[in-house]
């Protein structure tokens, strides 16, 4: 698919404006592209390269380093099941196997209806609440097999409307009104803040 929409370009511009160097905005912008299309398209990477002033190869270099970015379409719901040590000890792998059997796909695969993708993932910082998973980065804790089945049911029949499609992270973005902004300066020229300078300790008197 595609380059950023006009609306998302505005969002992108605001994100870029919060950084001293445009390239710093790259990961948030890749998320924006993924939110728009459900995955990061080649066109989108080329567009981001233009927006932050680097080559598409550099965007791909960054994009491909991070596992959240998928460069091909995945299911509407990406289910990341943790099998790392804390979860493994309390049944994470068994939950993964149950999920694979129930959905008829292997980890990494997507169901034919395009609804679900399962991933076998590393620790998702809910270690005391295993076995756990994230569906589109929304947590489900201490799941039994039937909890899992109910979740799938709810997602299928739409009763679980709290989970946005894959790619959407936080529903609220940071927005700094211009008149509240302290100001973002260039790394080359930004000086010591005046308020700090005026609060420096008096230099001790010489030879005192």
């Amino acid at each position: 698919m595609s380059r950023l929409t006009a609306q998302n370009q505005e969002v992108a511009a605001e994100i870029i404006s919060r950084y001293p160097r445009a390239k710093s905005a790259l990961i948030p912008l890749l998320h924006l592209a993924q939110e728009q299309d459900g995955y990061v398209a080649d066109d989108a990477m080329e567009h981001l390269a233009e927006l932050v002033g680097v080559t598409p190869a550099e965007v791909l270099g960054t994009c491909s380093f991070y596992e959240m970015f998928v460069r091909h379409p995945v299911g509407k719901y990406k289910i990341d099941i943790c099998t790392n040590i804390s979860c493994q000890l309390v049944g994470g792998e068994e939950l993964l196997h149950h999920a694979e059997e129930t959905l008829g796909i292997r980890a990494g695969g997507t169901t034919d209806d395009g609804l679900f993708t399962i991933e076998d993932v590393e620790c998702i910082a809910a270690c005391t609440e295993g076995p756990c998973l994230q569906v589109n980065y929304r947590y489900e804790y201490r799941l039994s097999n039937s909890d899992f089945d109910n979740m799938i049911e709810g997602l299928r029949d739409g009763s679980r409307d709290d989970v946005p499609p894959h790619g959407t992270l936080g529903l609220t973005r940071q927005h700094i009104p211009q008149d509240h902004l302290a100001g973002i300066g260039s790394p080359e020229t930004t000086p010591m803040p005046a308020w700090f300078e005026s609060r420096q300790p008096e230099p001790e008197a010489e030879g005192a």
Partner: peptide
Amino acid sequence: GDPLIHFIDRGNQTQVNTFPGL
């Protein structure tokens, strides 16, 4: 000053490559 080849992917899968078609 032509960063058209780059490390792609991560860890043991890291490879050098170009952007598709570029």
